[in-house]
Amino acid sequence: MSNTTGSATWLRRLLIGTGVTLSVLLLLTPLLLIFIAAFASGVGGIISNLQDADMLHAIGLTLLVAGLTVPINLIFGTLIAWCVTRFTFPGRRLLLTLIDIPFAVSPVVAGLLYLLLYGSNGPFATWLDAADLQLMFAWPGLVMVTVFVSCPFVVKELVPLMSTLGTEQEEAAVLLGASGWQVFWQITFPNIRWALLYGVILTNARAVGEFGAVSVVSGTIRGQTNTLPLHIELLQQDYNTTGAFIAAALLTLMAIATLVVKAVLQWRMHR
């Protein structure tokens, strides 16, 4: 930019140097440490740790939770975004504020909210017992809190985009005789698909990585209600640091994949 004078160049170098150094120390070094620590006992150690039944179960449960959470939040997130950007009605702003609540609430509090409501002391306890439904300390509870903590992502990606897009294309389609489904699938969806996918990968990253909320409603029962992030804590408490880092490395790979997809999507959306 304006590196016309000596002092400007000097300032520029100082700022870039400080920024890069801090970022490397704070963000990149932890990333390196994870993989180095995961390889501490060699490839054999990784294989044996990954073959551990509890680890496999944790991976499976994590995938289940994310696999259920993502479609739920995708569908409802899209409906909410459609509702608040395509119509004006009293309470529209309130709706937008309410959907922000999960991001403001501490994950532990989020878990607690569900535990109080659906737990054995909650108002639905008798009813749930009678129906022989165990929600808390079981996988449905994990899905419920994960839906809660990750529901704003899709909405937050779609609302600004759909407001900017406006409604003219959709109005034109309605005028030309398109049905509701046709308007959404043929007109709206092609315009928002990358943002939608972006919302999905963010939802997925959070769903896979959630710790606080699930630790409240999970009870951390090995081989039953233990997700991968919770398993890291267990392994560390067992002094199996390498095992903990192997689990962490798996999650880190997911995080890196998320960042790559995100970068690609942002590039596509701005094109």
């Binding site: 963000l27 990253a205 990585g209 992030p229 890291i232 962490a248 995080a255 890196i256 960042l259």
Partner: peptide, 9 residues
Amino acid sequence: LPFALPTAV
């Protein structure tokens, strides 16, 4: 990265 990386990690 901090948003993508699980907090436990």
